[in-house]
Nucleic acid binder design. Structure first.
Length: 302
DNA sequence: AACACCCGCAACCGCGATTTT
DNA sequence: CAAAATCGCGGTTGCGGGTGT
């Protein structure tokens, strides 16, 4: 397979690559095998010499990228789970486009994967809402609609599986206390989700084909739908009313709070407790809760 | 069936930071 | 200490599969 070639940074580099016969484009199985075997024996690092010594006609940079994003044994591929989505949204609101930093908090996920997720899914949401992804409007929507909705879904799935268990995700979020870390981290509540028959279930940005917490991300846009209930004239689909968050409360919140939505106003509207017990949003995203999400993700991997 | 368009993702690039020589 | 080599990050590109017409 011949590599597709992008733009060259310079004529010199082009010449050098022609002379050296540097390959570009998709990796073949043979190349993967060469790189994997070499790293297994000699370890990571010194990527330029890896490329040479392993007999790969690739740049060291390309080898490193291939290893880190694809071949590394602990790399976790496939669907972004709800918890991971939630964590990405939260951490991005803190750190912006610090993809590698965000990736450090999602075991097995690469910065590239998270970046792609953000660009393809989150930015698309902003586009559909006709606002900038960095605008206050979108950030508010994310924080006060999208993320609570994710929490609700995680909570719903968790509760349906672990009914009666004292240490559910919702309890944690409500109490905001890490007092029972051991129990929480060992409660595998989302792998065997059997609650797929819930007629009220609405897909988040995850796929409609499955309501597992590891459901595949789909183009479905609840965030946009919630927004359109007030912000757009085209919203006519009453089916969205089934959604846990596209309730009158939320649409009131959305409509009344633009553009100056604030925590206080939000919480007043949230007195019915659909976030669970009227917990403060500020408190909800403390270090402990992020820690909790990470623990759940680690648990996922086991 | 054929074509056009859209979208997700792997891989590339430039560049600044860090490490090695 | 300076230059070279390497690493790591964030942004961008374009292939290929899926979907719509």
């Amino acid at each position: 397979m011949e590599a597709h070639v992008g733009g060259f940074s310079s004529v010199n580099q082009q010449r050098e690559e022609e002379i050296l016969g540097v390959r570009k484009g998709p990796w073949t199985a043979e190349e993967d095998s060469l790189l994997t075997n070499y790293v297994a024996i000699h370890g990571e690092g010194r990527w330029n010499s890896v490329a040479r010594s392993a007999g790969l006609k690739r740049t060291g940079k390309s080898c490193r990228l291939r290893w880190l994003n694809y071949l590394r044994p602990d790399v976790r591929r496939g669907d972004i789970s709800l918890r991971e989505q939630l964590l990405i949204l939260e951490l991005h609101s803190r750190w912006g486009n610090r993809w590698s930093k965000i990736a450090q908090h999602l075991p097995g996920r690469t910065d590239n994967e998270i970046k792609n997720y953000w660009r393809t899914r989150v930015q698309k949401q902003a586009k559909q809402m006709k606002c900038d992804v960095n605008s206050k409007q979108f950030r508010d929507a994310m924080r006060y609609v999208w993320m609570p909705r994710l929490i609700e879904r995680i909570q719903a799935t968790t509760d349906s599986y672990s009914a009666g268990q004292p240490t559910s995700y919702s309890n944690y979020m409500t109490n905001g206390s890490p007092s029972n870390h051991a129990d929480i981290s060992t409660s595998k509540v989302y792998h065997n989700n059997e609650s797929g028959s819930d007629p009220n279930f609405m897909p988040e940005i995850s796929g409609a084909s499955s309501d597992s917490l590891d459901a595949q991300v789909s183009p479905g846009s609840d965030l946009t739908d919630c927004y359109n209930m007030h912000g757009g004239s085209s919203y006519t689909d009453n089916s969205e009313k089934r959604s846990g968050l596209c309730t009158d409360n939320v649409s009131e919140l959305w409509g009344s709070s633009k553009p100056g939505m604030d925590i206080q106003g939000f919480e007043q509207h949230n007195q019915n407790g659909w976030l669970g017990g009227g917990d403060s949003l500020e408190n909800m995203w403390n270090e402990e809760n992020i820690w909790f999400l990470q623990q759940q993700l680690c648990d996922d991997e086991v």
